[in-house]
Amino acid sequence: MHNLWPWKLELRGTPSRAMTYLSPLIAIVLTMLLGALLFAALGKDPLAGLKVFLIDPFNGKRAISELLLKATPLILCALGLAVCFRANIWNIGAEGQFTVGALFSGAMLVFLDVPNHAIPGSVGLVLMVLAGIVGGAFWASITASLRDRFNANEILVSLMLTYVAQLLLMYAVNGPLKDPNGMNFPQSKVFSDEFMLPMLLSGTRLHIGFAVTLILAAVMTVFMTRSFRGFSLMVGGVAPHAARYAGFSSRSALWVSLLISGGFAGLAGAFEIAGPIGQLLPSVSPGYGFAAIIVAFIGRLHPVGAVLGGLVMSLLYLGGELAQSRLGLPSAITGVFQGMLLFLLLASDTLINYRLRRKARI
């Protein structure tokens, strides 16, 4: 029966760099066009729907600050994932590493934030950030250890650990970190202002973490494009046999990439609970770790691209929230747009890398 289909996919030559970077733009445009059709199918004005997604998030300083605020954890997680994916290590557990980073940093703040404490706020912030990085890296190290010692599939291990992390957070806010004065709600106490991240723009919720994220994106650009370690990771991902021939350790690439990725995700979690949330809750993320996978691929696994991809994904988050309040659409609209974007990105990449050719007649 397979011979009845007269066409086959044939790999093209190496696509040009321009076409490689054009693919995400094509996917974004097609996502918005399909989104307009979706609005029409739901009985909404397509132009009003697109306005909510594309224009309203830029309406004023506060709206722009919210866009940058939501982009911060997405960019941080995507920076770490880009390192992993370049090294051909498929870390799908950034969401769990984000959660454990938030848990570790939140536990640190609960420990430090006591009456008449002797720890200055600046020192507490540094300890909180370090705890988040250590927490995320520790959770990623479990995946690295199982892959290293037992050759376990890192996709399944990192993904399953995400659910373990969520259960740990639920246990913590219902047990040892629960606010005794919180009327039995599963949450930690609200952290003191001196242990919260300083604001970047007055009158907004945008904190200094966004500036730190941009600095880290610049650092990772140098690391991935100009450093020997970054070069060895890239070679190991693209051509593992050549990497072994050149003496690059695949074991080292596994551990370095996963620890970097986990550390970035943990830092994102720390910024989230010491920024817009201000305490530990049963859920500290609306799915930033999973959405960051799309961000990394939109950005072509490049740190600068991750910044741009994070802004695009943040736009979808804010647009989805505005669509709920102004158009009466369900909360799932954000996930629908994210799914369309990922599907169309993969389709665009396929069309760029492959072409249909008629099978030769036998």
Rank of each mutant, 00 (worst) to 15 (best):
G43P: 01
K44D: 04
D56A: 04
V52G: 03
C84L: 09
S23D: 03
F85W: 15
I89G: 02
L68N: 07
C77K: 08
L34T: 02
D45V: 07
L79R: 11
P73W: 09
V83N: 13
G49K: 08
M19S: 12
M32T: 03
Y21S: 05
N91P: 13
A82V: 03
F58R: 00
P73K: 11
M19H: 06
P57C: 00
L81H: 06
V52T: 14
L22P: 06
T31F: 08
L74R: 09
K51M: 06
P73Q: 09
F58Y: 10
I75S: 12
G43K: 05
P57M: 02
M32I: 13
L33S: 02
A40L: 12
F39H: 10
S23N: 05
K61G: 07
K70T: 05
T31K: 02
L81R: 08
L68I: 02
F39E: 07
T20M: 06
D45R: 07
T72Y: 05
L68S: 07
P57W: 01
T31Q: 11
A36Y: 00
V83M: 13
I26R: 05
G60P: 11
D45Y: 03
I26K: 05
P24V: 04
I89E: 12
L76T: 13
L42H: 04
V29R: 01
G80I: 08
K51V: 05
D45C: 06
L22A: 14
A41W: 12
G60E: 14
L33N: 00
L37C: 11
A87W: 01
G35C: 07
A71V: 04
G60R: 06
R86T: 11
G60I: 03
I26E: 04
I92G: 06
K61W: 08
E66P: 03
